[in-house]
Design a protein around this nucleic acid. Structure first.
Length: 345
DNA sequence: GTCCCGGTGT
DNA sequence: ACACCGGGAC
């Protein structure tokens, strides 16, 4: 255990990537980075993180920001709930902690969007609390090093892993150690084809010893995908300047973001928007959780006099689409429209 | 193209 | 146990 800590930590200090959020100990910035890094890869997060701290450099600026600005800065990152929770949590810190971010994991965990992992990460990295983290990277490293054969889909296994993470934690440098575990998982101990040749702890690794790295962690949950076809309506005003968007209600995919109207049947689209003068202009594949979506895009030109009949949505100039938070597939539709309108000129 | 990856809240 | 999203690997 001692050798493991020393080798891992010295490896980390030499090899760690110089990421934007590693240049600071500002707890607000570390918090923002941790929320962005939930479910999202480092390379994707970097530009979003930079833009975020430039536009909302402090906790108070976030707490005072309008929802639209927050969502626009998050657009494209996915899991938009994270942005709403972060916003709510910032307001809550101002309201009940006087604007000072709590330093203990147990208190951080009471804030929306902060679970056990994120609480541990912020507490250990920003405040030096001796508390472990357990994310996908750490799970992979621990199950391989210790050769843990129980399924990580079982709650009992996860409990055991939390306890193990606490036991291996280097208590003198909890923040660096936690980051070292995750860094190893992210840059060496890959899910597929891990780079054991450069691993600082390969000689201590059970999975490596039996040449079965790829068989850990053991997972039992089978993915059941469901194919769905959806139909998006691009209602384009006569002059080709405006399109119709709807705001997605809470409790649906892309809650709070704007989308082109979409339906689960072409018949429904035709019922609501008429059958004449519509044409298929493209299709997009996208996945949301276990659904694989085939999104067919139908365009219809609408006379300007019909613009008032905009129930539950608004007409937007196509040049302003860039300012509105759209989920990734609908952003693609927006790009498609722009390219069609440019080639049509 | 298709498959795989991943924290929190409910 | 499942809902939530997007991107990178292959």
């Amino acid at each position: 255990m001692k050798a493991f800590r020393i080798r891992l930590l010295s490896w980390y200090r030499k090899e760690k990537r110089l990421l934007p959020w590693r240049k600071t100990r500002n707890p607000y910035k570390i918090w923002v980075s941790e929320i962005m890094l939930q479910q999202t890869q480092v390379a994707t997060v970097i530009p979003y993180y930079r833009r975020w701290v430039k536009n909302l450099p402090t906790l108070r600026s976030l707490a005072g920001a309008p929802t639209g600005k927050v969502l626009r800065l998050w657009e494209g990152l996915g899991y938009y709930r994270r942005a709403r929770f972060l916003h709510e949590a910032a307001k809550k810190v101002v309201r009940i902690h006087g604007g000072k971010i709590p330093q203990e994991a147990s208190l951080l965990e009471k804030l929306p969007g902060i679970g056990r992992y994120t609480a541990g990460a912020i507490a250990s990295i920003a405040f030096g609390e001796k508390t472990p983290v357990l994310d996908g990277n750490v799970i992979r490293v621990l199950t391989r090093i210790f050769g843990i054969r129980q399924s990580v889909d079982r709650a009992g296994t996860v409990m055991r892993l939390w306890s193990l993470a606490g036991k291996v934690l280097e208590k003198s440098f909890p923040g660096d150690f936690n980051q070292a575990m995750m860094e190893l998982g992210a840059t060496v101990c890959f899910p597929q084809n891990p780079e054991c040749r450069v691993c600082p702890v390969r000689s201590l690794c059970k999975a490596h010893r039996i040449k079965k790295e790829m068989f850990f962690p053991v997972k039992t949950r089978r993915e059941v995908y469901e194919d769905v076809t959806m139909f998006a309506a691009v209602l384009l005003q006569d002059s080709h300047e405006k399109v119709f968007l709807q705001k997605q209600p809470g409790g649906h995919w892309w809650a709070g973001l704007w989308t082109f109207p979409f339906y689960n049947s072409l018949q429904k689209l035709r019922e609501l928007h008429g059958k004449n003068g519509i044409r298929l202009i493209g299709q997009i594949r996208h996945s949301v959780t276990r659904f694989r979506i085939n999104l067919k895009i139908w365009q219809k030109t609408v006379p300007a006099r019909n613009l008032n009949r905009a129930r539950g949505g608004r007409w937007v100039n196509i040049n302003n689409l860039g300012r509105i938070p759209l989920p990734a597939p609908h952003r693609k539709i927006a790009r498609l429209i722009n390219s069609l309108s440019e080639s049509g000129r």
